[in-house]
């Protein structure tokens, strides 16, 4: 990572560069045809289109790209990537932007825009749920989401009939290997923290 950065230290946007830069460079293939935008099911609720987002990544304006709701309201349907005439890995690029933005929100470095707060919350609660049980326990996930998003009555009217239809399990299943399973989450977290420190150190050096 460090060699990559120092190599490009002449770049004025150097602070946005990181180990993921080779994936971002794929955006250079984009010739702005707009096909990704045309087939995107979420395009009408996005701040900026996927096409515009690729342009920002091309210009290495990573921080700006991360600031729009586009990366979070993306439904990950992968239509854009499938239809791209240049085979730009749009979803992979967006995944990197999301992962980076998520890390910043988790570390309290960024608040995240109001409209995407609940999307981020849903992902966070989903993974916490999985970490605890080893598998998703849907009733707990829906309950925690309603509680924490302050949307207490979301889909509540469906609860009773879903319960009687046997769609809501009552007793959660916890996997046997939960101890080592949880470790995977902790190890990932530790690895990210190390990377973070490394990045910060690097930014300071360049300042």
């Amino acid at each position: 990572m460090s060699t990559n950065n120092s190599h490009k230290s002449q770049n004025s946007h150097d602070h946005d560069k990181d180990s993921d830069s080779h994936v971002y460079e794929e955006a250079h293939k984009c010739y702005q045809c707009g096909k990704c935008f045309a087939g995107c099911p979420m395009s009408d609720v996005m701040d900026i289109s996927p096409t515009h987002l690729m342009r920002l990544v091309h210009l290495n304006e990573i921080k700006e790209a991360m600031s729009y709701n586009t990366i979070w309201v993306c439904a990950a349907c992968e239509s854009c990537m499938t239809r791209c005439p240049q085979q730009v890995p749009i979803v992979e690029i967006m995944d990197l932007l999301r992962q980076k933005a998520f890390k910043k929100i988790q570390n309290g470095e960024s608040d995240g825009e109001e409209s995407i707060k609940n999307v981020v919350l849903a992902h966070k609660l989903f993974l916490e749920n999985v970490k605890f049980f080893g598998r998703v326990f849907e009733p707990a996930l829906a309950g925690m989401y309603n509680l924490q998003s302050l949307d207490w009555f979301k889909d509540v009217e469906k609860g009773p009939s879903m319960f009687f239809k046997g769609k809501l399990p009552i007793i959660p299943h916890r996997i046997k290997g939960i101890k080592s399973f949880k470790k995977i989450f902790d190890n990932c977290k530790r690895k990210h923290e190390n990377e973070n420190e490394h990045e910060h150190k690097h930014e300071h050096e360049h300042e």
Binding site: D95, H123, L127, G134, G177, F181, I184
Partner: peptide, 25 residues
Amino acid sequence: EDWSCCGATSAHFTDRLLSYALPAR
């Protein structure tokens, strides 16, 4: 035996390594 969640969309949206480690298990 004792399979676990694949991480689904939430894992690959938020954590690259986790999104591979969970299915790999």
